[in-house]
Design a protein around this nucleic acid. Sequence first.
DNA 1: TATTTGTCATAGACATGATCTATAGCTCCT
DNA 2: AGGAGCTATAGATCATGTCTATGACAAATA
Lengths: 294, 294
Amino acid sequence: MSMTNNYELYKVFYWAAKTGSLTKAAKNLYLTQPSVSHAIKQLEERFGIALFYRNSKGVTLTQEGAVLYSYIEQSQILISLAEEKMAALKNLDSGELRIGGSDSLFKHYLLPYLEDYHHNHPGIRLHLNHGTTPEIITFLKEGRIDLGVVRMPIHDSQLEVRESIKLQDCFVTGARYAELRGVVLSLDKLLQYPVILFSRNSRARMAITELFQNYGYTLKPEIEVGSVELLIEFARKGLGISYVTREFVAKELEEGSLFEIQLDVQLPPTHVGIMTMRNMPLSRAASSFIALVQ
Amino acid sequence: MSMTNNYELYKVFYWAAKTGSLTKAAKNLYLTQPSVSHAIKQLEERFGIALFYRNSKGVTLTQEGAVLYSYIEQSQILISLAEEKMAALKNLDSGELRIGGSDSLFKHYLLPYLEDYHHNHPGIRLHLNHGTTPEIITFLKEGRIDLGVVRMPIHDSQLEVRESIKLQDCFVTGARYAELRGVVLSLDKLLQYPVILFSRNSRARMAITELFQNYGYTLKPEIEVGSVELLIEFARKGLGISYVTREFVAKELEEGSLFEIQLDVQLPPTHVGIMTMRNMPLSRAASSFIALVQ
DNA sequence: TATTTGTCATAGACATGATCTATAGCTCCT
DNA sequence: AGGAGCTATAGATCATGTCTATGACAAATA
């Protein structure tokens, strides 16, 4: 077997052939001419074939040397391209970033970061995958995404979770129920009003349902809708009281088209968690994005 | 200035990625596992990018590692092909052999060697270039042929000439001049018969013309023909006395369709010379062919 | 024709760095 | 809990890549 096939010799060969001069090759490689001479000799001895004609003006390839060069040239070009590509990846001039999360988190939480990131690194291709929390975790474990953005808590020993901003869910409604403005409601009082919940089996919905159960009540929504947008819209139009994330309705609260219902119990806050695979190096793109978000 | 981008590291990387295991890579490379581990680490530090996920079952490529692999894999495959090709060239399983010479030498001198060589090395492509001696020398110097086969003497300091078999030119004729069989002729007597010479300005023709001049005679051919075949044919048909190389008419002399004219002077013998460029390594194919001929 | 200036080759000294052995830490599986 | 895979780390060793100095040769120059 080819024990010490030093591939380094091919680099020397490449430059010697390309420049037609051992001296020039040496300069390109930051070596001395005898080193290059020695390297070429090694190759020639390994193959048992002369690769160059030596003359007083430099070197030219023999027939066999030209054959070797036709392969080695391509090989060296590929390596150069690889090195350029790696430099680009390091500088975040290229690459891709694959994020998993819910649509609402993308729209209301990640969007400004995504815009910022894309602006600073236009060469990085962004892939957004939406899904439920279990789906996102599966994507992560299958290597289909680099990071997942979901609500805490997450308990999975394979995952590393970074806690990001706190979110507070709350009940909101619009002018139709103006009498509730400034009033502190108990849970059972609240249930006398039509409640609008997110239809999908989201973590937030499970949490609030459980909270009502702990107090001995059953939370059964009058209306179920499929998006945060509709939760907001329905509450504004007076169809009922929507359970939403306060931070996601900041605009409506400020302009007064929605107001928050005060309750006599504290609704539990949740945090956004940024999940990655534990013990797996992050891609440059992913780690720089996480640094941006945190 | 260890600018030394050790390309050897790519080979290690290639095998680590290909086998998905540093241990297996080490076995393939006849190294130890720590060496491979160290090599990968060096690459990762050079790029500032993690290339592998390490886990208890081995290693798998990171996104960036996979990008690198896509280039390096091609590069390594090319190098493998190059090494196979060089081995084939060394074993004379492939390659080409370009010979220059006159048509008559090809046909009457080289043909059996060419057949033999082609039989033993069917992978070597043969290129035959015919031309006059000066043309052959030019071809050699331009690198268009590997060796030239011409008549001696050759005087050119750039060329290395190997003397091959001796050839003896002579005058022959056929039954029409049967009265000359066994007779020793002088040069002037010979000139009373129609002489047939090669039309092209060959070395052989120049030599015989000069010989006649040295004796005070002028050799002027009755007929000039363009090939050795016609020299033979015309002499057989009784059109005159042809000046040919004895070895090239061996068959006709033996079967008696031609006989040699005895002269009272010794015609100078010539040798076949095999020319190559001095100070230039021969291709494997060329040197093995020369060894066969000599 | 002698001189200069370029080329590559050779020899021997040196030091870098590739590789080894030994060991530890980790995860998974029995 | 123990064993059987992995890979990572540390430190010693020595192979070999690289250097300096020099030679031989050829071509351009004067």
